[in-house]
Design a protein around this nucleic acid. Structure first.
Length: 554
RNA sequence: GGCAGCGUAGCUCAGUGGUAGAGCAGGGGACUCAUAAGCCCUUGGUCAUUGGUUCAAAUCCAAUCGCUGCCA
């Protein structure tokens, strides 16, 4: 039975380059999941886009004497290039800056207003007279009332970790100009989350398939009691509030960016030439998955579902497989200290599948995990190259040397050959099962263990020995392993698409792995093999030192 | 501070009531088709700590410590 699967991925902020934490946390798992669902025949739509709004991008633009549009455009182009090179297969990667997104957002805003889920109230806001604008919480600095630290931010004191309100700071100052802000009442629209408390609790309770971390923190918010929150901001960059008197305000980015999942679907439908096609995913039977990092669980399991419930008639997320964080060589990622591995840098120097392999192997599914160049090189060389790449290479070169570069006739299979092929076929099923549950690490382990079994089998069979006595016996074991390789090219396709296609072609198949589908297809006797080329490149140990030296350098 | 997740071998992790596991790294061996890869054997753990429930706890409960995130 085919299903409709909507894969929505966190909207990256177009304020700087992508780093490996974002890839491991959201984009790679989303892509693996989307590829798997496509190959098993599901109807898949994978969308996301650049988040162009919010205060940081405007402040950066001022500092660099440019416009928010220019910064957004630069990084949006860079993101698109990265997806292409890393094989992140979006059906549409748009931006929050489109007319379509504005229209969809404003429609939702006005509908919620009309239904009473958005109401006016006023709140105290810091206003900087010398900058002539209201300041977001984090742009007010001052002395922490809790620990006395002189550089506490209005949202949080970094030195004692306590969350703060800008009005609590002693001697507040504007983080941009250093001037003294004053606090003024400002009118905003509040989302009536409190009114949806029961409905949300019931819905969350029915989602027992959610991950521990997602369910735990979502339940925590509900038990605490949901509070109404402002969904507009005193800022002049973003989606305009479609209400008279709010010309100098904009819709809050977290209210608006998640609407992108819906607006992007509408944009995709329009580009397909079928404006109603979005309804297949949002009104008809479909499962919506949102791949995100653990930092924005609240917005995806409560705030956005509340918006959808209030609007009415649209599908809610089916699953929100949020990942934990990736540290870099034992330390937290830090953009300001340049403690990060930037995706563009990686892609300039190494293969996409090597990264996809390593990041899947250490994917932070249940706890924070660590990226290190040493482990990257080690796992590439000792696992990916040695276990999988070498398996393909040793068998393919053997075929060229002894069987004229064609698939030999296996003849009647003996018990161990039959068993290995059964296990390979079973592995495809198990991998699929794991991928369907978003257990990506488990899927990879299953695949690699199949490659290992094939290596063991080869050593037992030793066709390099048997060929001296019986060409048929050697043909049988070699043909068997070619079958396992074919199975692996399928089973690993969602995770390692580039090398899977390469192996598929090396095995003499035409077309693509994707077209062939999620099944084991044995290469036919006589099928012409391509001249084998190594699937993966072995990395020089010097890479570890070179790359480690780059960390933390400005 | 509150809430949530996590803490198992040197590393990455699996294991949710029944004799502590895998891969990689380390040590040894036999082989040689292969990117000096693969295969076999092997060293290695007070399952964060303390207490409790149970015939039986890595697993359930409580407290403590540590790491990360969130506090919209």
């Amino acid at each position: 039975m085919t299903e409709r699967i909507h894969v929505g991925v966190a909207w990256p902020y177009a304020n700087g380059p992508l780093h490996l934490g974002q890839i491991a946390g959201a984009y790679l798992p989303a892509d693996i999941f989307a590829r798997y669902n496509r190959i098993i025949g599901n109807e898949v739509l994978m969308v996301s886009g650049s988040d162009l709004h919010g205060a940081p991008i405007t402040i950066r633009a001022e500092r660099e004497n440019t416009t928010p549009e220019a910064i957004g455009a630069k990084y949006h182009a860079e993101f698109l290039d990265c997806w292409e090179r890393l094989g992140i297969s979006f059906d549409l990667f748009t931006t929050t800056g489109t007319d379509n997104h504005r229209e969809v957002t404003q429609d939702i805003f006005l509908t919620l207003m009309r239904k009473g889920y958005l109401y006016r109230d006023s709140m105290l806001q810091a206003y900087c007279p010398s900058c002539g604008r209201f300041l977001p919480d984090r742009y007010v600095q001052g002395i922490c009332p809790n620990c006395g630290s002189p550089n506490a931010r209005g949202d949080e004191c970094e030195s004692c970790g306590k969350p703060l309100d800008p009005v609590d700071l002693n001697n507040p100052r504007c983080a941009v100009c250093g001037g003294t802000p004053r606090f003024e009442q400002s009118e905003h629209f509040f989302l009536k989350l409190s009114a949806l408390q029961e409905e949300l609790a019931a819905w969350v309770g029915g989602n027992s398939h959610w991950r521990q971390n997602v369910m735990g923190s979502t339940r925590g918010f509900i038990d605490e009691g949901l509070r109404d929150r402002a969904m507009t901001r005193d800022i002049n960059w973003g989606v305009p509030v479609p209400v008279e008197g709010f010309e100098n305000k904009r819709i809050y980015v977290w209210f608006e960016a998640v609407i992108g999942y819906l607006s992007a679907t509408k944009e995709w439908a329009h580009l397909q030439g079928d404006d109603a096609a979005w309804e297949k995913y949002w009104k008809e039977d479909a499962k919506i998955y949102n791949f995100i990092g653990k930092d924005n669980i609240f917005f995806h399991t409560l705030s956005w579902p509340a918006t959808l419930m209030a609007y009415g008639g649209l599908n809610l997320p089916y699953d929100v497989p949020a990942n934990e964080f990736l540290t870099i060589q034992g330390q937290k990622l830090s953009t300001s200290r340049n403690w990060a591995v930037w995706l563009t840098d990686y892609l300039e120097r190494y293969d996409p599948d090597a990264l996809r392999y390593y990041l899947t192997a250490v994917m932070p599914e249940t706890q924070d995990s660590d990226f290190s160049w040493e482990k990257f090189v080690r796992r590439n060389n000792d696992e990916l190259v040695a276990t999988y790449g070498n398996l393909a290479h040793r068998v393919l070169t053997f075929c060229h040397r002894h069987f004229g570069g064609v698939v030999p006739d296996s003849g009647e299979l003996d018990a161990s050959s039959r068993q290995l092929l059964d296990e390979a076929e079973q592995a495809i099923g198990d991998i699929g099962d794991a991928l369907g549950r978003c257990s990506f690490k488990e899927a990879l382990r299953t695949a690699m263990s199949t490659a290992q079994k094939a290596n063991r089998y080869l050593d037992e069979q030793a066709p390099w020995k048997s060929i001296k006595q019986s060409k048929d016996e050697a043909a049988r074991s070699v043909a068997t392993v070619l079958g396992v390789l074919s199975a692996l090219s399928t089973g690993l396709y969602p995770i390692l698409p580039f090398s899977s296609e390469k192996l598929h072609a090396s095995l003499g198949f035409s077309g693509s792995v994707l077209e062939r589908g999620w099944k084991m297809v044995l290469p036919a006797a006589g099928q012409v093999l391509r001249q084998p080329q190594p699937l993966f490149v072995k990395l020089d140990e010097a890479v570890i030192e070179e790359e480690t030296a780059r960390l933390g350098q400005s």
